[in-house]
Design a protein around this nucleic acid. Structure first.
Lengths: 127, 127
DNA sequence: CGGCTATATCGACAGGCGTCGATATAAGGG
DNA sequence: CCCTTATATCGACGCCTGTCGATATAGCCG
């Protein structure tokens, strides 16, 4: 509760580019695949959630190495992958390096995956 | 036009389990990473969007092999990956095999990635 | 300066993954 | 039945990736 976090979910912004609407272009698919690839490792997923849920919206690397069984270079590697995918940002502040999530990147992926609940009302000669 | 598709977006259901709320458990992270890994390939992303945006909500494999430069066995492999990740379902109907997306799976991932817009109003002694 | 802590980079190694051609299985049609 | 089409499986090959230990860089402190 160090910051007042208004629960403003992009409920309407999230429904702007779902992949259900039209097939992905080749270039878009390549870029999005790179972002999803960054999310395709359990350690990175947990790192991201640790950062996102950390108070103040950012976390020092020193907060992130503890909860894992992997070595410190491995954590550093995973953070680099997340950063190069544009999912997190980072900044050195004195001795420590802080990481935070990039909401726009995550919300873009979120909106892409949003699928409308398909109410199967057979109207035409479909099935 | 073959089915009536009501645009019911899970605007409120999508905000149920964002990773910003609490760190992911190890088991959840492993399972989710498997699903994201299925999305981490450009061909699979395009396949998924082709299926999702296809009329009637499902597509025959014969509709999916055309738009790609990769071989038919490769398409088949990618469809298997998507299926084993729980992102699509499939069924043989006579000569052809049809694939459709599993909305619950995609919406689960979508909800996980949804990040509230963090309004940085310093309230306490945080930053 | 010298040493200590925090983090990143490097080089190496094992295993996973995307791709292919060849081939197997499934279904339909003469 | 045999042939043709549709899809899946197999085996192989090369590349990518996660991991490590060792080491480099950056900043603080005495």
């Amino acid at each position: 509760m160090s910051k007042q976090m208004l629960p403003v979910f992009p409920a309407d912004a999230g429904c702007c580019a779902p992949m259900v609407r039209e097939p992905l272009a080749e270039d878009d698919a390549a870029e999005l695949a790179r972002m999803f690839k960054a999310l395709s490792d359990p350690v990175r997923l947990r790192l991201l959630s640790l950062i996102a849920s950390h108070e103040g919206g950012e976390a020092c690397v020193c907060d992130l190495t503890g909860p894992f069984d992997v070595s410190q270079p491995t954590i550093s590697h995973h953070l680099k992958v997340l950063r190069e995918a544009g999912l997190v940002g980072s900044e050195r502040r004195g001795t420590w390096v802080y990481y935070w999530v990039v909401p726009a990147a995550l919300n873009r992926l979120s909106g892409l995956l949003q699928i409308p609940v398909r109410v199967s009302v057979p109207a035409g000669s479909g099935a």
